[in-house]
Design a protein around this nucleic acid. Structure first.
Lengths: 146, 146
DNA sequence: ATACTTGCAAATCGTTTGCAATACC
DNA sequence: GGTATTGCAAACGATTTGCAAGTAT
């Protein structure tokens, strides 16, 4: 139907990633990378699917999973594992860390530059550091005054 | 039958945790806390079940799951999430971090004392830090000479 | 035209649960 | 004896897959 919206930037992004800009990938990319709410997103496949459906985008859950993995493989997303049995996808692919609100299961970015890790042993022979994840798990309750 | 093996230490440990020292819990505790290989363990439910079966211990997988969670609730184990859809249980419950070998899915402890984290923002209002997980993900390949 | 994508429904994986039989104190 | 625990098999939720139908280049 109407494919005249200014999807050009997203089209380029997908093409650059080696992915055909199909209707569903474009719609998902729009939800992910150009959210009305601005900023970065931490979302599960089910959540993204629900959003798509809510916006009358016809996409199957299977395609949402496929797309999320393709985007991740292309470096457009970063998968974050904090809970057994549930994967989050983060639109922020830069070096950074996370707060994880255990009650509610929400994630919040911690900019990578401001955090410094010291004293880590060198990676064992024959391996290299692919990535370092720091997850600060938060629970309800006041932090005690020291 | 023969319940005369020196399980006393384990029996005490279970009792102290408020858990009845049943045959299956004792056998699992022995595999977890007194491994022939010494040292701490990072194991999945399936792996532990396989070990038990291999040692002719009759335990159902469901009981292994139950026991692992009970042990975790009692502070005898620590659950580590590094991969979607798979939980590891760590017999080291002290403050420490992990190397994760992406190929092979093995975990290795990094003592907590030697690692220092600086620059973390304060936890948001009304929350407290329950725990901080640092996961150093390793992949095959030489670390580049700088 | 042709290879890549999609959707559906079935399959899979790890994990949990219901409930009768069983083991501990 | 009475309650906690176990085992089995069915139920589960998240994710994946097979394959025919649809779509991008």
């Amino acid at each position: 139907m109407n494919k005249d919206r200014p999807y050009s930037a997203l089209v380029q992004r997908l093409k650059a990633a080696g992915l055909r800009p199909t209707r569903q990938r474009l719609a998902l990319a729009k939800l992910l990378f150009e959210p009305q709410s601005g900023g970065d997103r931490h979302i599960t496949a089910e959540q993204l699917h629900a959003e798509a459906v809510a916006e009358a985008v016809r996409v199957s859950l299977a395609t949402v999973y496929n797309s999320l993995h393709q985007f991740t493989g292309a470096g457009l997303l970063r998968e974050v594992v904090v809970e057994p049995g549930r994967s989050y996808f983060d639109t922020n692919v830069s070096d950074h860390h996370h707060f994880y609100f255990e009650d509610g299961g929400r994630l919040q970015d911690i900019p990578g530059e401001q955090v410094h890790l010291e004293g880590l042993p060198n990676p064992p022979e024959g391996t290299r550091v692919a990535r370092i994840d720091v997850i600060v798990r938060l629970s309800d309750g006041e932090s005690e005054a020291s």
